[in-house]
Design a protein around this nucleic acid. Structure first.
Lengths: 341, 341
DNA sequence: TCTCTAAATGATTGCGCAATCATTTGTCAA
DNA sequence: TTGACAAATGATTGCGCAATCATTTAGAGA
């Protein structure tokens, strides 16, 4: 299957000879055009185009001890939420000519450590990691890394380097308070996966309800399973079996919320009067469901862009003035929650 | 922000000295354990663990003119369909110790060419590209590439090297025939993005309906916009404005189908009696919608796994016995289509 | 025990580039 | 015109590893 290459590779030296300059001058002309006179730059560029010279990243990496690849560690590649973030990351990376190496930690700290070791051995230009709950070994590796690091999705007190995210606890708390304000009194929490961010959402939920004197542990239904629409149906069924008087649910995320809506439709439970529904992330489809589903909007693509932007600035040597960026969230109230006082 | 590394890097030579063997023996012990005696292998492994030696991929790539990175070109990173494929790709790649470099062509042939040039300059171990409609320049590049290539998502006559996919035309045709068999007579096509695969689905749709004597160009509603649930609502509205008598829709994909269902609910159009709905891909949520939505199931994760599997086999030098793998599809009939004769 | 062959191990070299330091050229003010 | 200094360019070297070829050792058969 493998084809043979017959033609010898065009190297920097070939270009240099053809342009009648030294190899290093060609190298400079391509990497730091400003450091070469305009005349030479033009001549060299012409020869480069002519010969079809393409730099060898491996040789460059070896000589400079630095690649132009940014490592990105996320816990899932099928989760819609990360798709948006990745999109933002790619957009910025591409513009700047950086490549992305993606690692899937599958919500496992051990796997994260392993991938980190692999990635760091490749001398990345920078690293983007998800969340703020790295294992202490991973944290140590990241602190020692000789490249900038951005933690995304969340914000916290002790950034390894930079952070771009928002407070999941506050987002959940705001959403829950909205349900309380609507007059719902038996408000449930449906949670899948239960990763650190979901945990914090549950904290925000619990805190808010305790303050309102409405917290009931029996209304908290969680599972370690991955979140799906189907699972939303199942969790609602479980909730109703346990607590038939539940009158609202705050869902870990929008997949579950949609499943809850579908299950309510099947059970002839009227939304929002018999059951209020609130999701998290505000996926595009939330706005067109029947009824449209209230959700906490998060700025995922922007998060990716900001993360890569900070990283690139740091790689370029700029002192990043704002190492922790809080992108916030926005509660989008729709028909699935309404005042039932 | 950048930290300084003080400790010198541990190299192959350091390990070799500590184990009292030559550097190349250490290299062999790590890459081809079988070619080194068991005794030595063990001694070397011990020293490697002891010193925490990690090979430098850049040096390895330079010396061997080969990386352990597989380039993957997909047209979208937010599209659910590719998320599944990527998952399969990552699973296999990880097991074999290969890294993935992802490129987003954004449905642009020019961008694909550009990314191909970038990727090929990095001496990838293999390439996975989407579809069979590469530009002739891209195709030439791929044919010349000195690494194995897998085309995914579709199958066709002239594989560059290997292919893993299915026939979109046949899938669409089967789904359309099902609608015909149900007794629908004014069957519409809703299509977004209109990439080559969607085009072929439209071809299958048209061909089937022409054969049944039911084809009507006014029932074909397409847009270059990216597919979303919201867009499904809009396209149905457009269809009904144009042809109020439409009694079934075959949707380009499941996002649109869900949007159509939502819009039918809003308009009090009863599914499946007043309107039959069929999607494509069979995303998880199709099964739990109300009514559950008929769809053409595709085997996306398996496609990723098979593609990477073939690639790895080819990289390993195995002669791939089956260069074109047709994974087929499966029509999943649900409540959104029912006999209305 | 000796030869022959295969398996195991080693020495040398170069992959293509950028860092470092050295040198040349150009520019400006006195 | 000259000197001083900055800008532009060049020569050398080594990054860490694997390919190639050479050599040694072990094992089998006679």
């Amino acid at each position: 299957m493998r084809k043979k290459i017959t033609k010898r590779k065009i190297t920097l030296l070939d270009v240099a000879k053809a342009a009648d300059v030294s190899a290093i001058t060609v190298s400079r002309a391509l990497r730091h055009p400003a450091s070469v006179s305009a005349k030479l730059r033009e001549r060299i560029q012409h020869v480069v185009d002519d010969l079809g010279y393409v730099p060898d990243p491996a040789a460059s990496a070896l000589a400079s001890a630095r690649t132009n690849v940014v490592g990105v560690l996320i816990p899932s590649i099928t989760n819609n939420v990360f798709a948006g973030v990745l999109r933002g990351i790619y957009m910025e990376a591409e513009k700047a000519g950086y490549g992305i190496q993606l690692g899937n930690t599958r919500y496992s700290m051990l796997e994260e450590e392993r991938l980190l070791r692999v990635f760091l051995s490749q001398r990345p230009a920078g690293l983007i990691v998800t969340g703020i709950d790295q294992s202490s070994a991973a944290r140590t590796q990241l602190l020692r890394a000789d490249c900038p690091v951005v933690q995304i999705m969340e914000i916290g007190d002790k950034p390894i380097d930079m952070m771009v995210g928002f407070s999941h606890r506050d987002g959940a708390s705001t959403a829950t308070q909205h349900l309380v304000d609507c007059g719902y009194t038996r408000i449930a929490f449906l949670g899948a996966r239960m990763d650190p961010r979901t945990q914090r959402r549950l904290e925000g939920f619990s805190q808010c309800l305790k303050q309102a004197g409405l917290f009931d542990q029996r209304l908290v239904v969680t599972t370690p399973k991955a979140s799906t629409v189907t699972l939303g149906c199942e969790l609602l069924s479980e909730l109703l079996a346990r607590a038939p008087d539940a009158d609202a649910v705050f869902c870990n995320n929008d997949d579950l919320a949609l499943g809850v809506l579908f299950e309510c439709q099947r059970r002839q439970i009227t939304v929002p009067t018999d059951m209020g529904i609130c999701g998290f992330n505000d996926l595009e489809m939330m706005a067109v469901a029947n009824p449209a589903i209230t959700s906490v909007r998060t700025f995922r693509e922007e998060m990716g862009r900001e993360a890569m932007g900070s990283l690139l600035a740091s790689i370029a040597g700029t002192v990043v003035e704002q190492p922790v960026i809080d992108l916030g969230y926005e509660l989008i109230k729709r028909q699935s929650t309404r005042s039932v006082k």
